[in-house]
Structure formats: C-alpha cells, structure tokens
Amino acid sequence: MRINLASIHVDDQQKALRFYTEVLGFRKKTDIPMGEHSWLTVVSPEEPEGVELVLEPSDHPAVRPYKEALVADGIPFTSFAVADVQAEFDRLTKLGVTFTQEPASMGLVTTAVLDDTCGNLIQLAAMNDAVA
C-alpha cells in the first residue's frame, strides 16, 4: 500500500488549475471530464511521478462551512515544501498572492501561509538550516 494522492476542495476547478499551475508552478497531470466536474490532478515539476494533488470540487454542503471556519482562524488545509520560504513569499507576492502569515521562523521550520483563491489557506514550509 502507498499514498499516491492528496486532495483539496476547491471552489472552482478551472480557477484552481490556473492558480496551482500558473502561480504556484505545479503541472497538470490528469484531467478527465466526469459530468459537471473533472478528475483533475496536478504534480510538482520537481517530482513528476510523485504524489498528485487532486483539485476536488467543493460542492458538498458540508465543505463550505468547514473551509470557512479554517480560513477564519488562519489554519492551512495543507502544506507544501519549498527550498526558501522568503524567496517564495517574494515571488508570489509579486504575482498578487495574499499571505495571511508572512515568513516566520517556528523552531525547526520557517513557514508562511497563503490564500489559494479557491477557499483554502496553504502553508509553505522549509526546514531551517541546522546551526553547526
């Protein structure tokens, strides 16, 4: 058994695809029409055969209040690994991305939290260099 997928509920699949590819920099992996929605996944170009992120429609009535409650308290739905949080913050801010938490060192990691424009907050995290 292995984990090959992670999923996130997005308010609008096409808008999400644009954000996750054109802004964050992931690549579309699968796009299979399934009625009103699609089976839509993206992967990191750093790991094209790695875990796929499913951009899943959030049309179930339970999803919206759940997402809204997380966002109100600033809680990220998931976290992506980056090499340099500050560099990503600078790059993404220039592209118009909103951050609810600017880069901050949190013990072993540096983190920041951004809005994916599709109803979720996403954490970016990088391990801090060990002090010799």
Binding site: D73, G74, I75, P76, T100, Q101, A104, M106, T111
Partner: peptide, 24 residues
Amino acid sequence: ERNGQTLFEVCTRLISRHGLTSSR
C-alpha cells in the same frame, strides 16, 4: 514582534518558540 496574526499563527508561535502546548 508582529501585529496582525491569525489564531493559527499565535498558536504556532506559542508551541514552537515558547514550548507552550495550550490547545487552540
């Protein structure tokens, strides 16, 4: 140190910088 924090950021700072394990 930084104004304008979400509840999540306050909680994360308390855990990672102060070792305080209060619930959210």
